[in-house]
């Protein structure tokens, strides 16, 4: 009872990365709180997911299996989650800030009258004293997220309502198997008792999911271009450099909006969050909306004609110069020195 629950999303027959990232964070929080970590998987053909989730620290894996439950639909999944939460009374419930988690989370939080914080960038356990009532709380979940277009960072708490719910975007948390696997006890949910026929009111007629081709998030080296690249053509040299040094090309929102790069490459608050070992920012001024998605990079090199560009404040190396001049030199000197 009062454990941490993670709703695990299925994607192409596998547990989605974002869910495993949340399991990693959930395990850490459970260890801090001295409680257990429980995973909930709803779908079809769930064979093998329990083993994987146990490696990520799951003590209990709740499964609801049925062909009507795959692909995801709002009402049956939220009915199952609400039913389960009413019985198990989790203190914390986490889900991915994906089209699924952002569809499901608010529905569940409304039904349970529990607070939900979207798109958290950090989750920490801490105490709180209510100034008005003087009441003190221990072991609350601090749900930390940027707000107001990224201009402020807010710490949100749910002092009185349970579960404390939060969604987190893919790539924000680290994904790591637990040092010690969880107990991995599998419990099948008798889900039909929670779901009515009317929960299937929305029918999926057709579904076309694209394979993820561009994987900016997983790349250890990212060469990102901004509006300063000037054109789609200007991005070509970034691809060249990426090819030579073994990286992936990313882009700022301004560059994506201008049509220089594909949306799948967008890094920042409205794109993906990345934490590569090397991030080369080319012609990116460094607005907070962008840096929020990359400031966890181990090393940042910026190339900008403006020596005062905000990006230089978080860069390890700030090259003042024209990308059209610098990139070819990087390629040249990498090739010269690497063998």
């Amino acid at each position: 009872m009062n454990n941490i629950f993670v709703y695990c999303e299925m994607e192409g027959g596998k547990i989605a990365d974002v869910s495993l990232e949340l399991m990693t964070k959930g395990r850490e929080l459970a260890d801090t709180l001295g409680c257990e970590l429980e995973a909930v998987v709803i779908g079809n053909n769930l064979e093998g997911v329990d083993k994987e989730l146990a490696r990520y620290g799951a003590d209990t894996i709740w499964t609801a299996e049925g062909k009507e439950l795959d692909p995801y639909r709002t009402l049956p999944h939220s009915a199952i989650l609400c039913g389960l939460f009413k019985e198990e009374k989790p203190q914390i419930a986490l889900m991915g800030a994906t089209p699924i988690g952002r569809d499901l989370g608010p529905r569940v939080s409304s039904a349970l009258h529990s607070g939900l914080t979207a798109d958290c960038t950090s989750l920490v356990i801490g105490g709180h004293k209510d100034n008005r009532s003087g009441k003190e709380y221990e072991n609350l979940l601090y749900q930390i997220r940027p707000a107001f277009g990224g201009n402020i960072i807010a710490t949100i708490i749910n002092p009185d309502c349970r579960p404390q719910m939060a969604t987190v975007r893919e790539g924000v948390m680290k994904k790591e198997e637990a040092a010690k696997p969880g107990k991995g006890t599998v419990k099948a949910i008798d889900w039909k008792k929670y779901v009515n026929d009317t929960d299937f009111a929305v029918k999926i007629i057709e579904r076309q999911m694209e394979e993820r081709k561009i994987n900016v998030k997983g790349a250890p080296i990212i060469i990102a271009g901004g509006y300063g690249m000037g054109s789609k053509d200007g991005f070509k040299q970034l691809f060249e450099l990426a090819d030579v040094i073994g990286g992936e090309v990313g882009a700022s929102r301004a560059a994506v909006d201008a049509g220089f790069a594909d949306h799948a490459r967008q890094i920042g608050q409205t794109g993906v969050t990345v934490r590569p070992k090397l991030y080369i920012a080319c012609g990116i001024s460094g607005q907070i909306q962008h840096t929020a998605g990359m400031d966890g990079s181990s090393m940042i090199i910026s190339i900008n004609t403006d020596p005062e560009a905000p990006i230089n404040k978080i860069a390890d190396y700030a090259i003042t110069g024209d990308v059209n001049d610098v990139i070819p030199k990087m390629i040249k000197y990498y090739k010269q020195n690497s063998k």
Partner: peptide, 27 residues
């Protein structure tokens, strides 16, 4: 149910970047 515990304004952490030029020897 949710309360704002704290609001922090985003301020860039000043960190000394190593300054380089586009000159061949720097790159």
């Amino acid at each position: 149910p949710t309360k704002v515990k704290q609001i922090e304004n985003v301020v860039f952490q000043a960190k000394e970047a190593k300054r380089l030029t586009a000159a061949d020897n720097d790159i």
